[in-house]
Nucleic acid binder design. Structure first.
Lengths: 337, 337
DNA sequence: CTGTTAGCGCATTCAC
DNA sequence: GTGAATGCGCTAACAG
């Protein structure tokens, strides 16, 4: 098959252009170092042969791969694609190619993945990393590294701060007459989850309300759906969930159990990735995850260029997008303490 | 910075294990060629130094990169993540790393992307490629290549065949009393779009109905939303859209225009990626895109192993998932021919 | 400005 | 079984 045809190398171009291989190399890498005429001649020869510089060889020689890696726990989780897309766009514009790693929510796999990739990339973007701080730091020592939704000191990171949105959410619920909120949590090794849980506790206290947390097994539709009984058992009249997927599942489960939303129960999601596509349209804590991806790449770019900058910690604010799953608390019935 | 620390190479290991570099190389690549004792000694030395074979150097020497690339028009389109995820999982299990390319629906960018990647990967998966057949064939000549949702002769491909689902959809609409269907198309350079359009035409004829096609600019929510007037202008009582995103947008637009679904108008999507999350829950033509990803990788794997197999053309059937956006055709009013 | 030389880290002939 | 030598394609000093 034609696939075996040897590709033209720098030597072929050199011969055709009647210059040395070094000159060809320069014509591509640093044209300003050689004569305009020469550059043109070389380029013409290269085009004629269909020559294309070999990244691999270049990388071996220079250590620069012009590759980066983006690692996420689950590509199929709608939170990540916009982030990946944005980062990818930035990388593309800068001439970088991107590896994608999916850890399947597993710290070990993430570790293996990053190790395997480390020698082929110049830098990493780790989104919602499930690894331990230690492993992250270790990796950061080998390669420039930017974290998304993970707050590890000393490592450049972009955080989506749910606090503002959560405070708004709690106030919103308070005004609607709710007194007791349940938080349906996500992966326990998730920074976002801990952060949200903490913010909620604070907001609730400030509003003079009560809250209780229960765990969803995983950040997914199914997990949300299966937790309905437990949610109802808490006596809460409203739920804030780890993310929109869980909220969506909860919505479906509630419906199955004959619970009307928002008349009997209110639901607020996080991330706002489902837009208005659920029914009722989901009230959600919104943040621009595409912006996070873009910023993450910019930071990585700087780090790769050797900027030994101070501790970068970029936080993106969130806000509450009120839609149709929140309503007045149901009139108090039985359990009056 | 610690990042500059030189990594241990094969030579370091060789020295420590008191063998030659060749032996170290073999200990990793083909242990059966050397003594068990020696292997153990080398491996121990390697571990002690934290040695890790350098992929780049290996690739330069052998031509085998243990990398593949997956290229899609838009990562953020919910059709692709499950596919990517499945392919990625397969690759991971086989020890391959994966590059992700996002062409942003643009043939030229896709071409650039694939060219840039070609020297770093052993094979490609092109999902819903926007390139011309010619460019695809050219690439296929350089590297093993598997297509998804693109029917190019001579190149291994996995196709999601909407025909079955579309026929079911049309029959479904026929039974509900609809006589005139509008197809809201997607990217014109999309194989899927052409295929769906064709299947629809056939199905409609068979059912003795009429159909008309109009174009959405892009496969997106917004595109669907903006096309409402045109859709209504066709006099059709039901729409089948290129994909769920467009259907979802159409739903939203219809709502804005005060058109009740499904009472006044029925909508059917394609791909079934939104699940039951829209309102009303979207009737859609469903196919398992994760299976497509998995199969695509398996095929690629075979191709990379040199299987010069016959023309592979794997088609996955689709079916109709009836939900709540389809209902009886509205009573005929004004325009009676 | 341009050519020469010497590796980058590894796999692979050949000898032994 | 194992070691010495050679080359993958390119860049980076160092000369001139």
């Amino acid at each position: 098959m034609a696939r075996e045809k040897r590709l033209p190398t720098i030597s072929d171009v050199a011969k055709l252009a009647q210059v040395s291989r070094a000159t060809v190399s320069r014509a591509f890498g640093r044209p300003e170092l050689i004569g305009e005429e020469t550059v043109k001649r070389v380029l013409r020869a290269a085009k004629e042969l269909g020559y294309q510089p070999n990244q691999t060889a270049r990388a071996l020689s220079t250590g620069r791969h012009t590759n980066i890696a983006i690692v996420v726990p689950d590509v199929a989780n709608p939170f990540f694609p916009p982030l990946i897309r944005a980062a990818q766009a930035g990388a593309d514009a800068a001439g970088y190619s991107v590896f994608l790693g999916d850890s399947d929510e597993d710290a070990d796999r993430e570790h293996t993945l990053t190790q395997r990739l480390a020698l082929q990339v110049e830098g990493f973007i780790l989104a919602s990393s499930r690894m331990q701080d230690e492993q992250i730091s270790e990796l950061a020592e080998r390669r420039p590294l930017v974290l998304v939704n993970r707050d590890t000191r000393g490592i450049p990171r972009v955080l989506i701060d749910a606090a503002a949105g959560i405070h708004a959410a709690v106030e919103h619920l308070a005004q609607l007459g709710h007194r007791r909120i349940v938080y349906v949590s996500g992966p326990s090794n998730s920074w976002s989850d801990q952060e949200r849980r903490r913010a909620l506790k604070r907001a609730v206290r400030k509003a003079g309300m009560e809250s209780v947390a229960i765990g969803a097994r995983r950040a997914s539709f199914e997990a949300g759906r299966q937790v309905v009984a437990e949610v109802r058992g808490t006596g809460a009249t409203a739920a804030i969930t780890f993310d929109d997927l869980v909220a969506h599942g909860l919505l479906a489960g509630l419906l199955e159990h004959g619970v009307s939303v928002p008349r009997e129960f209110s639901v607020i999601g996080c991330d706002d990735v489902l837009g208005a596509s659920t029914f009722p349209a989901l009230t959600s804590i919104s943040a621009r995850c595409d912006a996070a991806g873009q910023i993450a790449f910019d930071l990585l770019m700087k780090a790769m260029q050797g900027a030994e900058s101070a501790d970068v910690r970029c936080v993106l604010e969130s806000r509450l997008a009120v839609r149709a799953t929140t309503g007045a608390a149901p009139a108090r019935s039985s359990r009056k303490a």
